[in-house]
Design a protein around this nucleic acid. Structure first.
Lengths: 243, 243
DNA sequence: AATTTCACCGATAGTACTATCGGTGAAAAT
DNA sequence: ATTTTCACCGATAGTACTATCGGTGAAATT
């Protein structure tokens, strides 16, 4: 029983097929391997029919980037929502890493494509990749700020951003390592990232007027939901800075 | 007064010109922008003469990778030599980051090209990039081991590697940020990286049978050349593992 | 029922690049 | 002095891809 597709439905379907095929080829062969010939064939239509749906490959990539960005933003929104619901401070910090790790593993091709495009001057997706990275960095910095790591002066703001950037890079690296089979346990990845982050944030804490140094008891036992009277703080900075 | 070049000298010169031109184009336009036409023109010879020097573009890239690898290894050797000469423990740890940061800034195109190639399945340089990253990761892990962070069981070895990988990624990210003008001060980058690393290593220290937890005094004062009776330890593990 | 629309097709002109070939002149070998 | 070598040249066949064009049949409109 074949469904009697309407014309516009059919068109939309093949358009989707093209996008899906392009994404797969992009992931498997990289942007260099992408061509209207391959995409059209993979989608099951003639090469010339590619142009019924897109002005050129550039336009298809733009759409792909927009859709990818939308998916990414959605997953970030979800992550922040979850993080807000989380109980203890420590758990929240941990989730700050666990959640993006999960997101990456759900759609690894998005990260792979982005990592490639980011440093490739010939890539049509470069701008998108750079912007995505910057957005994510701001998100992460806001997350940290929300956890109480205030950044009052410019120096501390910059440091917070550097920490966010460094930790993001580490997150991507460990996620890739996990996907490549080197680090089977995602929880362990999250642990390492938490530890990395905490070390750097201690630097911030102690030099700014932020929370007191708590060098002891840092070792993150499960009972360490600490800092009960924590700064209610600049809490919603993220809403202004981010998204 | 033009020097009367011998035939082989002249050939070697144009070969070098080709390699230099290819590297420049690779950096500016990426691997996709590379072609025998462009490289030959940039080197000032006919396109067909490209094949006098290289079997094809693939071979040129291979040579470029080998030369790049050699330069990289040399700079790593130098870094380790310097690190060995360094006085205090803390300074050594700091140099562990400062030195690679400097190396990257001396030849940023090498990192850029590598970052691109690493995740690009269509890249001829991919294997080289992946291997380079792995080598550097092992170096770094060995550096940390030399600092006294022993890894006896498999779990700790894996954690040490994860830390090395994460910190490497952060190093690259901050170096790129510096080159892009976002983080003008390289010393500050090194500080952040040191802090990141210390935080993570604390995790390792306290869980392994390694050095005692020293949560206090961690804040890296200049007089912190600490742990005077430190493990003479596995000190030369790196020589076996690395290079 | 007649007409229009349009998603898709095959064919093809145009572009960019690769890799080979025979020719040339100056350096090198004899 | 003669011959050989060879780095470089221009020309060109072959490959892969882009983007356009007119044609076709079925869906949509009238």
């Amino acid at each position: 029983m074949t469904t009697p597709l309407s014309r516009s439905e059919a068109k939309d379907l093949t358009r989707r097929k093209l996008l899906r095929a392009a994404l797969a080829i992009l992931d498997e062969e990289g942007e260099a391997g992408l061509s209207t010939v391959k995409v059209a064939r993979a989608a099951g239509i003639a090469q010339s029919s590619f142009y019924v749906h897109f002005k050129d490959m550039q336009e298809l990539l733009l759409v792909l980037a927009q859709e990818g960005g939308e998916r990414l933003r959605a997953s970030m929104r979800e992550a922040r929502r979850k993080a807000r619901e989380a109980p203890g401070d420590l758990e929240r910090h941990r989730d700050t890493f666990r959640i993006p790790l999960d997101a990456i593993c759900r759609h690894p091709e998005l990260l792979r494509i982005q990592l490639r495009a980011r440093h490739d001057p010939s890539s049509s997706l470069r701008e998108f990749a750079v912007e995505t990275a910057a957005t994510y960095r701001r998100h992460h910095a806001a997350d940290l700020a929300e956890l109480g790591y205030t950044a009052d002066d410019e120096r501390d703001r910059r440091r917070l951003e550097m920490i966010a950037e460094g930790v993001n890079a580490a997150t991507n690296a460990l996620a890739m390592g996990h996907l490549e089979g080197r680090y089977p346990d995602l929880d362990e990845c999250a642990d390492i990232l938490t530890a990395l982050s905490r070390g750097a944030l201690r630097l911030l804490r102690s030099t700014s007027g932020g929370p007191a140094q708590r060098a002891e008891g840092d070792q993150a036992g499960p009972g360490d939901q600490a800092r009960p009277g924590d700064q209610p703080g600049p809490g919603d900075l993220d809403h202004e800075t981010v998204e």
